[in-house]
Amino acid sequence: MREHEIEPVPGLPEKLPEGEGILWQGSPRWWSLASRALHLRGLALYFALMVGWSIWNAASSAASFGEAAFASATSLGLALLCLAVLVVIGRAMAQAAFYTITNKRVVLRVGVALPMTINIPFTAIETAAVKRHADGTEDIVLTLSSKQKIAWLALWPHARPWRVARAEPMLRAVPVTSGAAQVLARALAASASMPVTPVVEQGRGVRDGALPGAAVA
């Protein structure tokens, strides 16, 4: 993991060494990243309930219609302002993020104010899995070997939710049509010389299934 300001190659802090080539590059879809990482839908519902309660309370207790209207407009304005700020933040996070898959590693360039590159060699990846969403995007989760650790705060929002102690990097909100999952699966299988069936966690999580050949010994 390293900070940088100059990119000799888009998404990478330095030129690739001989024998390494880029297989895929892409960015998150901004609305999908913002809505899921910042929980915009849940917050919009919460604000709607709060504004509704404010309108009802103002209408039942205000001395005049003008006071009720002012109180309701103030609550609605504050709610919309909060959501607008979160949308701007989410869009900035998505625009700053750039994912790269080479034939040897996965590289995540993240960070709005100060770009940071996180290099994940295939040898550090224990398993990989993908979850597809109804909006046409998918999340690709990388489970690292026990010897490899990345701070969850350094990864967020490009990390699997609720995995803080052992953070799991995630290529988040990638369009399904980009083919990132297929590219990564083939690259991991080629790196391991043969397909290996990874263990996929059951129950609550972001995984729909493991990528074929996505485990590296």
Results as ranks from 00 to 15, higher is better:
S64L: 00
W31R: 15
P198D: 15
L114W: 07
W53C: 09
A180R: 00
E14K: 15
N57K: 02
P10L: 08
A96H: 12
A48V: 07
F70C: 12
T197F: 05
A59T: 10
M1H: 05
Q202N: 10
I6V: 07
Q148L: 11
A44T: 15
A58F: 01
P10Q: 05
A215G: 14
G179C: 01
A68W: 01
T100D: 12
A128C: 09
A210L: 08
V112R: 06
A190Y: 01
E138N: 03
P17W: 00
T100Q: 06
F98T: 03
V88E: 12
L33K: 10
A84E: 06
A214D: 11
L78M: 10
M170G: 10
A113V: 03
I150G: 08
P195K: 02
G90Y: 09
A73E: 04
V110N: 04
R2K: 02
V106I: 12
P13I: 02
L114A: 11
N57I: 00
V164E: 02
N103V: 04
T102Y: 02
R207K: 11
P198G: 14
A151W: 12
E67M: 08
I55Y: 03
S54W: 06
W53N: 05
I150Y: 09
T100H: 13
T143W: 14
A128G: 14
E3F: 07
R109F: 00
A73Y: 04
G213S: 07
H4F: 07
A185S: 14
V183Q: 02
S27H: 06
A180N: 03
G11A: 08
V141N: 11
A134H: 12
A192L: 06
S35F: 10
M194P: 00
P198A: 13
R160G: 04
I140K: 13
L184E: 04
A210F: 06
L184Y: 05
T102R: 02
A154L: 05
F47Y: 14
Y99L: 01
S72Q: 04
Y46D: 06
V174C: 01
A63F: 00
S146N: 12
R105E: 15
S35T: 07
G77N: 10
T127D: 14
A154G: 06
A185L: 04
V85D: 14
H133G: 05
H158C: 14
A128H: 09
T177L: 07
L211F: 10
S32Y: 01
Q25E: 09
R29W: 00
A44D: 15
S145N: 09
A134E: 09
